[in-house]
Write a protein that binds this DNA or RNA. Sequence first.
DNA 1: CCTTCGCGTCGAAGCGCTTCGATGACCTGC
DNA 2: GCAGGTCATCGAAGCGCTTCGACGCGAAGG
Lengths: 333, 333
Amino acid sequence: MRTVTIADVAKHAGVAVSTVSYVLSGKRAISATTRQRVLDSVRVLGYHPNAGARALASKRAKVIALVLPLRAGMNLPVLMQFATSVVTTARQYDHDVLLMTADEGTEGLHRVAASALVDGLLLMDVEIHDPRVPLLRKLAEPAVLIGFPADPEGLTCVDLDFARAGALCADHLADLGHREIALLGAPRVVYERGTGFAERTMAGFVEAARRHGIEADARPCEESFDEVQAAVKLLLDERPGLSGLVVHNEAAAGHVLGALRILGRRVPEDVSVVAICPDDIAERASPALTSVLIPAEDVGRQAVRLLMAKLDGQAVPESTLLEPRLTIRESSR
Amino acid sequence: MRTVTIADVAKHAGVAVSTVSYVLSGKRAISATTRQRVLDSVRVLGYHPNAGARALASKRAKVIALVLPLRAGMNLPVLMQFATSVVTTARQYDHDVLLMTADEGTEGLHRVAASALVDGLLLMDVEIHDPRVPLLRKLAEPAVLIGFPADPEGLTCVDLDFARAGALCADHLADLGHREIALLGAPRVVYERGTGFAERTMAGFVEAARRHGIEADARPCEESFDEVQAAVKLLLDERPGLSGLVVHNEAAAGHVLGALRILGRRVPEDVSVVAICPDDIAERASPALTSVLIPAEDVGRQAVRLLMAKLDGQAVPESTLLEPRLTIRESSR
DNA sequence: CCTTCGCGTCGAAGCGCTTCGATGACCTGC
DNA sequence: GCAGGTCATCGAAGCGCTTCGACGCGAAGG
């Protein structure tokens, strides 16, 4: 069966091709009766506009690019959640999502933009000195970044407010009366890459602790059980009075609990633990972890909304920070 | 700056538009000198063919759809690996990847196919009685499935040979001399959905154990630490002689080790543990887990290759099973 | 020497859609 | 009763590319 074109619909409905187009796009007034007739024909014939033709004629592909990183130290579940939310939200705006990996690099972005394959770009995991940023500034296509480069001037960036997240953890522990706390962060490589969010969390944490006038310590943390255990042991040896621990490392969160158990520290009686991680991981742990949620879904949704606004030619804020939320569970007291 | 079209290239190179097209597609012989002149112009002008126009004229979008599930019990890291490998491989064939979620359902597949947005489909996590299969049989666009529906007749399916994976674990434990073994599988909901791979693993495991004449037990397993611990305890109580444990549940693998530790069983001295999971998880555990790798990358690559072959009109096998590979680490002896 | 052939190139016809300007038909108000 | 305006619809001109048939030219064949 030959594929149905707009001409078939027009003939079936007894109207001009352009009329069908206007019914479908709503860009000109069409009488109710005609509209209905056209819509019926569309349904009867099972018409779907040809995407290529539409893109060619309208200069809008109705597709956005989602550029995902795939490197060490990335936090896969959060990435997936994020991707899911982007796709779902984009569909609500009648757009599709083209998936790209970050290692296509600047050239890849240029390719999809120049070929008009996509109307806009969504980049995840932007680094402080991201080589793609200069290109984005030049590109005609609008872009939204997840994460913040050193200079967000002229860009549109969204992210969880990681400084607030770090601070929230410190606040929580301070409020509970802890006087010596520490943060176990992402693997060292993440900091070396200058990914920003990890540093901002640490900074927020340390600053909040200072404000409360309590002792705080923050260091990177690798992800294998043995390394986590070693790190926890070292920390506890160095700081015997330590009673509050923040873990900003999804893969390590479970291991930290295991390590404390082995080291004979009870949670939360001896040590309170707060994690920065998705809820499902926190809930699956034992004891269930008090945690600050990384709202991947919100970030994805916001990012798409901003991009759609830019596609509509609306002005949008350069920077959007999402408020973190602390959920108290069993691991802190 | 106006975007560069093929006409600009043609003028710059002093040839006809069609000549430029033939140089770029290689579908007709072009003299070396002309070819070079055109190629130079392309480079100088920074020409990128317009995707929509190309798709319209050639009836090939050079885009494939990747349909990912996003439901409970899915194993995110493996999914990401898979997606990455699909994108990378597709790019090698000069194709892009449109990301869709499974909950767009049959209708979504129909939409992208009918609108010629994509040339082919890649579906992950196909269920035994998948409602999308009938549509795929009708569709003009070729499709490749990851996983097997009840009747793969007329389809193209790829997957890890999970029965072999289960058997491999049983073989390994039997070879080590264990006489009573058990498998902890995916959460119950996964079996209820009829996802196939979970059942096939169990079946392969049980069958291999039977062949070795040893006792085997297989049951679902939830993913929270407490439930894992309860399940392990129950198993150990019921089967005091149990000395070999297979875990086919990525989220639970770490928890199983923690539970055994708490229950006072040493790994591997008292109980040998084998996991079916990605290598990074196995390596990060303590002790490092002997594991059967889920070769997400291979599956993705194979799937794209098969799809590309179908797009070229080549015949491909209905079913492709990938051989699992066992890596011996510290958790079994 | 003329025909035949193949090679390299060109021009033009679409592909299916959007959008602009034009055209009637019909109303409004003076 | 007619100028002016509105509303609904139409026709046609592209959008940028691929592809088909045609054509000119030099080499090969008789």
